[in-house]
Simulated assay, not measured.
Amino acid sequence: MTEIYLAEDQQMLQSALAMLLNLEDDFKVVGCANNGKTALEDIIKLHPTVAVLDIEMPGLSGLEVAKQLRLRNLNIKIIILTTFARSRYFEDALAAKVNGYLLKDSPSESLINAIRTILLGNTVFDPKLVTSVLDTADNPLSKRELEILTALKEYPTTKELAKHLFLSEGTVRNYISSILSKTGTASRLEAINLAEKRHWI
């Protein structure tokens, strides 16, 4: 029997996934949590075969739980669930040596298939996440430029952005000019759309 622990902070999704997994004759959900701290404590105590972890949870994130489990050298298969194909999260998941990384909008049977594949010693990563990393590899922007581009979504004017970042308006204009030049875009909105499409921000 494959014992599975499920950590997901959205109660409806947690219940649905638990029900789905328990329908499999050889699967048994041995515990659930809606926060990372409880999940880590339970998993250490229960030592399930597989831990399915939501990437964003109160207390500790799924990635933080995964890292703690790896530090303890526990022989547990780890699958991360995420809503967004963010390359930074995916890179962190790889560093934490997770066995699977899936998007929540994948078909429900994808999780079941992923668990069975992982139990055979393989890894399972959603193709969209792999693509996001490849897109990020072509990112020409500096870390500071990415911060400014991200902040632009909430503070669209130069004056607002300068105040938010504690920079002069001239410095902000210089950064934005560099961003537009590097990305080959004609406007701030176009630069933001490009960066989001390629998962740079």
Rank of each mutant, 00 (worst) to 15 (best):
L71H: 11
T150D: 13
K37P: 00
T117Q: 10
I76Q: 07
G62I: 10
A85R: 05
S110P: 00
Q10W: 03
L74Y: 08
S87N: 13
L46N: 05
L134H: 06
L17C: 05
C32I: 12
L194A: 13
E145F: 02
K67P: 00
K143G: 06
P140T: 01
K159N: 11
I179V: 15
I201A: 01
L141K: 00
L120G: 10
S181E: 14
G31R: 06
A16E: 08
T136D: 10
A162G: 07
A66T: 08
R116T: 11
E56W: 09
T38C: 03
I192K: 07
I55T: 10
L69V: 11
A96E: 06
P140A: 02
I55C: 09
Y175T: 07
A51G: 06
N174M: 13
I78S: 05
R144G: 00
L94H: 04
S108C: 01
K182C: 10
D105M: 02
Q14C: 13
K153L: 05
D138W: 02
L17D: 02
I118F: 01
D135R: 07
I118M: 02
L60I: 09
L102G: 08
L103M: 02
N193M: 15
K143Y: 03
T150S: 15
L46G: 00
G170F: 08
A33C: 05
T157Y: 03
A162K: 01
Q11E: 15
P156C: 08
L120R: 15
K45Y: 03
E64S: 14
E64D: 13
L111H: 00
E147H: 05
N35T: 05
F90M: 11
P58H: 09
W200V: 12
E190Y: 05
V98C: 10
A95I: 06
D42S: 12
N113I: 04
L167K: 14
K67T: 13
D135A: 10
L40Y: 13
A95E: 09
E24L: 04
G100I: 03
F125R: 01
L167Y: 08
V98S: 11
A191G: 11
I179N: 03
L21F: 02
Q10V: 14
Y155E: 04
A162M: 05
A195W: 11
R72H: 01
T82V: 06
